Amino acid sequence: MSIEQLFEYFALFGGIEESISLDCTLSVEENIQRNILENFATLDALIVPSYIKKAPFSNFLIAASYGDAKIDNILRRSRIRESIGKEIITQLLELDTISVVESREAPLKTHPKQKLKKALKSYKIQPKIRFKEPFYHFWFGFVEPFRSEILHGDFERFFEYFAKHSIALTSLVYEELSNAWIAQEFDALSSGSYWDKNGEFDILAFSQENKIILGECKYKNKKICKNEWSKLQYKAMVSDIKPDIWVFFSKNGFSNELTKNPIENLKLYDLSAFKEFIDRN
């Protein structure tokens, strides 16, 4: 199995590997149909406890499976009151279904009486919700919304939606594994995504030597070009981040202007960087 296939299959089936039988000669869609859609009852039983597949838990988890995953936005999309939402989150944390990733943004106020600009008065620093297992993310993002149709043997709308949106699943797994790679290779004290009032970054890490590592991950079928480097520099300036090391992870490699004219302190990694990492882990 190629590194690309490993990413794509882990994004769908991570956490239930022993319950399925993948055939690498088949397409991803064919494996989904054989292992999940045509074997629905067996896979449905893996989502436990069963009540999380019913409202309001299912509404919350479906809303958490797409978008920016910030808690307030999840509650808004699922039309769940904040008080109920807190209870749902508490139970899902106890079940180990989700995790809460706290924002690393510095508080807007440095002292209680500090006045904020008008544009920032309604801004709220928010944590994000992440699924503990990729399969749960796939299930609530792609399977659960089409439950009735799938049970009746109608897979058309499922596959239409999957074709349009499945890249988001693999991109998130790529981002998380890239951060794990950074943490290991740079002996980082911390590594993860970062978001603030100005924007978001896939990677922000701090090394043992107090070096700041900032970067982006692109799981797309095109090369990263120098324009992406300029965009990252601008975003860093707006968010007042001053990296010592810049990194790009790209599924499909890099343009000649980046590879043939190396930029100091800019590191470029494609899928081949993960081969040894996956073997080690």
Rank of each mutant, 00 (worst) to 15 (best):
S2L: 02
G14S: 08
G15K: 02
E18W: 07
L22T: 05
L26A: 12
V28N: 01
E29K: 09
E29V: 08
E30S: 15
N31F: 14
Q33H: 08
I36N: 08
L37Y: 01
L37P: 02
N39T: 05
F40Y: 15
D44W: 01
A45T: 01
A45Y: 01
L46V: 09
I47F: 04
V48F: 10
I52E: 04
K53N: 14
K54R: 10
F57S: 06
N59H: 13
F60Y: 12
A64G: 03
A64D: 08
S65I: 14
D68W: 08
A69C: 12
A69M: 03
A69T: 04
I71P: 01
L75T: 04
L75R: 01
S78M: 04
I80D: 06
S83E: 11
I84W: 07
E87G: 06
E87C: 03
E94Y: 08
E94W: 06
I98Q: 02
I98P: 07
S99W: 00
V100C: 12
V101T: 01
R104K: 10
R104G: 13
L108E: 00
K109E: 06
T110A: 10
H111N: 09
K118T: 04
K118C: 01
K118Q: 03
Y123Q: 03
K124F: 14
I125Q: 04
Q126K: 09
P127D: 03
I129C: 09
I129Y: 10
I129M: 10
K132T: 10
E133H: 14
P134L: 10
P134A: 12
F135D: 09
Y136D: 00
W139N: 01
F140P: 08
E144L: 11
E144P: 00
P145S: 08
S148W: 11
S148Q: 14
I150F: 13
I150Y: 13
L151R: 11
H152T: 00
H152R: 00
F155L: 05
E156V: 03
R157V: 15
F159M: 10
F159Q: 05
E160K: 13
F162S: 07
A163L: 11
S166A: 09
S166E: 05
I167W: 14
A168I: 11
S171H: 05
S171V: 01
L172S: 10
L172Y: 06
E175G: 03
N179D: 07
W181G: 01
A183M: 13
Q184F: 05
E185N: 14
E185A: 09
D187R: 12
D187W: 04
L189W: 04
S190W: 15
S191W: 12
W195H: 06
K197L: 08
N198H: 10
G199C: 07
F201P: 03
S207H: 07
E209F: 13
I213F: 11
C217A: 15
K220L: 11
K220R: 13
K222R: 10
K223V: 15
C225D: 11
C225G: 08
N227H: 12
S230W: 07
L232M: 15
Q233F: 06
K235Q: 09
F248V: 07
F249M: 01
K251R: 15
N252K: 02
N252P: 04
T259D: 00
K260D: 14
N265K: 13
N265A: 12
N265R: 06
K267Q: 05
L268G: 01
Y269C: 03
A273F: 00
F274E: 11
E276I: 03
E276C: 07
F277A: 02
F277P: 03
I278F: 15
D279Y: 15
